[in-house]
């Protein structure tokens, strides 16, 4: 009776690869999302994901359909969007959310135009929304590598990031590590989004980054628990989402994100920390 829960992964290597890679990536992307949310920077993921497109398009134009080239192109463009937004903010005082909101339609439009120039041979929908079919052994390796790298780097980054977003003036007055930690952290965000675009899609990776993070906020007031819970919810969403996409023949990225979305809605409703249905019992202390 429980066979449908694991049978597709036993039967097809590509499903297995998508599962392993996706779960690994979800477990690194979701904690990054928790930290992004703490910094009130949830939107930057969205902007970077759109920003990846022109980079991937240029790489495709120059090199052709090669995973390392697409990844490098996406990485360069994603870092470029994040860096450009920070630069505009620093030099003009335009708020960071506004400068990001201005940059990502530019990236998306120029990406689509570049793909048009390249002759539409690259599947735009596949790039934005992902396809489990496209996860081969090399992609799986890249996903697991990025996931491990992110988690390993998050350990030393954790404390400076936390302090830098609670009280940046204090950290900047006692140490110079804040901006570096933040830059490295943004680099990890870009890396996670880029490497996930094969299986899950650049745009859908954003959902996998933010939804488990938002959901975890309704379950615990303690940050370590939130990070852990977000990682688990992200991994679970990948597993159930891949099953949904397999059994109903749906695209994998949106299926995964819809499952993550269901977790979020459930958390908003029944979560013990400020969940809607808990409100009568536990007033919000202000």
């Amino acid at each position: 009776m429980l066979a449908p829960l694991w049978q597709p992964f036993m039967e097809f290597a590509f499903m297995r690869q998508a599962l392993f890679g996706g779960v690994a990536l979800a477990m690194s992307a979701a904690p990054l999302g928790v930290l992004l949310m703490l910094r009130r920077m949830s939107l930057i993921g969205d902007a970077i994901a759109h920003g990846i497109l022109p980079g991937a398009a240029v790489a495709f134009w120059l090199v052709g359909l090669s995973l390392p080239a697409l990844t490098l192109g996406g990485l360069g463009a994603g870092l470029g969007v994040a860096g450009l937004a920070a630069w505009v903010t620093r030099n003009t005082g335009l708020r960071e959310d506004a400068s990001l909101a201005a940059l990502y339609p530019i990236s998306l439009a120029s990406g689509v135009l570049l793909l048009g120039l390249a002759g539409r041979r690259l599947d735009l929908l596949g790039l934005l929304f992902g396809s489990a079919l496209s996860v081969d052994a090399a992609t799986l390796q890249a996903m697991v590598l990025v996931a491990v790298l992110s988690v390993v780097l998050l350990v030393p980054l954790y404390r400076p990031l936390l302090l830098d977003c609670l009280d940046p003036l204090f950290l900047r007055s006692v140490s110079r590590v804040g901006p570096w930690a933040y830059g490295l952290f943004l680099g990890l965000v870009v890396l996670n989004l880029v490497v996930g675009f094969q299986a899950i899609g650049a745009l859908m990776m954003v959902g996998l980054m933010t939804l488990p993070a938002a959901a975890s906020r309704f379950w615990s007031r303690r940050l370590p628990w939130r990070l852990l819970l977000a990682a688990l919810l992200g991994g679970l969403a990948v597993w159930l989402g891949l099953l949904l996409s397999y059994h109903l023949a749906l695209p994998s990225g949106p299926a995964i994100v819809v499952v993550a979305g269901a977790f979020y809605v459930l958390s908003v409703l029944v979560g013990p920390v400020h969940g809607v249905l808990q409100r009568s019992r536990q007033p919000i202390p202000l």
């Binding site: 009280d167 007055s173 940050l223």
Partner: peptide, 22 residues
């Protein structure tokens, strides 16, 4: 190093951290 005490409104009260950690 410089010790800097900010005005309180600069601090996000929703931040998941305890008094001891702060």
């Amino acid at each position: 190093p410089v010790g800097y005490l900010v005005q309180q409104h600069a601090i996000d009260r929703q931040f998941p951290i305890t008094l001891g950690e702060l």
